[in-house]
Design a protein around this nucleic acid. Structure first.
Lengths: 344, 344
DNA sequence: CTGTTAGCGCTTTCAA
DNA sequence: TTGAAAGCGCTAACAG
């Protein structure tokens, strides 16, 4: 019952050597049924619990993986974490969850922690240019997988969403309803998803022959406040957009608040589509149309890749599809809008 | 640059013994300036990174703590986790974050993992009756702190919110506006906060001499769907409540959806107050009045207590105050309501 | 102030 | 199939 029961105690109680006890408990080598039974019994009676640290030290396998997300409080990353964690647990791996807080310095701090803790592998939603400790990881040859985001110049397996497809779905949806001036609220260029979605947007706009007025393009930082600022800027235009596309859920929330503050009704005066589906987006009034990826699947898949790499396999990058979930926020028609704020 | 640089390598390069190298790098004992400089130099040149597992094995101190929350995807717990994690990091402790998923079996699984990993201490938002591995923890004498919730019969320091005060604030607020029939959407009796809030509600109702009709009391499970079910039940009453009090944010969201589904307008036909402030509650339409606790402070305080206990101190339980944040959802007056659905 | 020497709890040869 | 023994990388006496 005491927590400090050691393998030696178990061996003594079972009347075998520590070697045998180890072999029985790890089940790797052959052991006699008699020994097996007595060791097992002794272990239970004593309430033996293996010391994972000693085992890791000796066997150079910690059975722990690090997961570094950009922001735990962002529901999208919480879902990724959940998916990854459950997958790891199923293979009896422990997940060390860390939060970079959208801050490159903290990202480096935690990568350092991971390395010091000698985790068996790392999953990261990276940010920045990939200087600093990200390079150290590569040199340390720790199994690494990128999730949601990537960093140029790193040959690392990744699990990402099909951003181009997602943007195209959104733009096509809006174009179908007659919108030609779509205001874009993008992410920071320092993050791969920010870049990918922007260039996809430009392509989609061209493909559908919509207005490519540069004044319709803004960029935020994937936080709520920046969505408000961007929306304000877009709506202040002398020819404001009739629809908004936000590259991230939190910025979409900020934009919704700003639009409302200006007395405009989303879904009626202005159409809005957001990236990332969040459980409660359907509860907003009006419910938000989104381009959704399955965050949990992103996390689970990333963990699966990582475990593959850890076990000596090779992992191929995976791109998961996105899908459009049309809800009321995008039901506004451009004509409608024009009538409401003719030239604001 | 290689990840497998060992202390021995550093010592060799610096021309000192491993003992001295260890002393310099851990900074615990006195060392000569000369040795210090050369060891430090050697460590940097070699890219030495301490092996935390070996250190933990030898010194019986892992510098890792376990944090077990009931549901990572609940923003409330995400905030707690964030607060705890940042506090731990400041004292250079690593946080192992685990997710019980509101499931007692998974709670036990992770407690087991924590014990096996030999963490220095554990923070948990517990559930259930405290059988199973929770008892094992006590016997293992691992420093333990409860956060948000407690379990009867455990003499463990805790950081909780002042539930009684919170409920009283909410009830007083609604009573002030003339409401006498408040429908209560409570949590599960298996969780301490569920029990505490319910009994506080009954007391507040009595204190303000409001209607104590038992049909006004319902219970959910702290998940969204149950809030909808509970609201449906309350509104189906032949004398429906004119105000709703939800003991948890997710259930509140469910209730909002259900109320809206029935064609009633929150803030006009029906007042609503919810527990737990969530960043986006202000963005719902109408914005939700809440009884808020500072989740981040809960987490940070819990971690502070835990670190105290780990360092041999004694920790006193802390009860943090709640505060009412009045917003539009609670502006409905009872007369108003009666007019809208006279006897539904 | 520093080198030497035992281990921490476990796995893994190597013989028997 | 098993015991004995040698470490994994580090810290903590103990002498000097």
């Amino acid at each position: 019952m005491d927590a400090t029961v050691t393998l030696k105690d178990v061996a003594a109680r079972a009347g075998v050597s520590v070697g045998t006890a180890s072999r029985v408990l790890s089940g790797h080598s052959a052991t006699s049924p008699a020994a097996r039974e007595r060791v097992r019994a002794a272990a239970t009676e004593l309430g033996y619990r293996m010391n994972a640290r000693a085992q890791a030290l000796r066997s150079a396998r910690s059975h722990a993986v690090g997961l570094l997300v950009s922001d735990v409080r962002n529901p999208f990353f919480a879902d990724i974490a959940h998916g990854a964690e459950q997958t790891a647990l199923a293979s009896s791996y422990v997940t060390l969850l860390a939060n970079a807080n959208e801050d490159t310095a903290q990202q480096d701090t935690y990568l350092d922690v991971f390395l010091t803790q000698r985790v068996d592998g790392i999953i990261i939603a990276p940010q920045g240019e990939g200087r600093g400790d990200l390079r150290a990881l590569e040199q340390a040859r720790v199994p690494l997988v990128f999730v949601d985001r990537t960093v140029d110049g790193f040959d690392v397996p990744s699990v990402t969403a099909d951003n181009a497809q997602g943007v195209e779905l959104a733009v096509a949806h809006l174009a179908e309803q007659g919108h030609t001036r779509i205001g874009y609220i993008g992410g920071p260029p320092s993050v791969s998803t920010g870049r990918a979605r922007l260039s996809a947007f430009l392509e989609s706009i061209a493909r559908h022959e919509l207005d490519d007025d540069p004044a319709l393009i803004t960029a935020g930082d994937f936080r709520r406040a920046s969505g408000g600022t961007a929306a304000a800027k877009l709506l202040a235009n002398h020819r404001p957009p009739t629809a908004l596309l936000a590259a991230d859920s939190l910025m979409a929330v900020g934009a919704v608040a700003e639009v409302r503050r200006r007395g405009l009704r989303i879904g009626e005066d202005l159409a809005l589509v957001a990236f990332d589906d969040i459980e409660w987006f359907g509860e907003l009034d009006p419910p938000l149309t989104v381009v959704a990826h399955d965050a949990r699947a992103l996390g689970a898949t990333a963990m699966r890749l990582l475990l593959d790499v850890i076990n000596g396999g090779t992992a191929e990058s995976v791109v998961l599809p996105m899908r459009l979930i049309p809800r009321r926020s995008s039901s506004a028609r451009p004509t409608h809008t024009a009538a409401v704020h003719p030239s604001v």
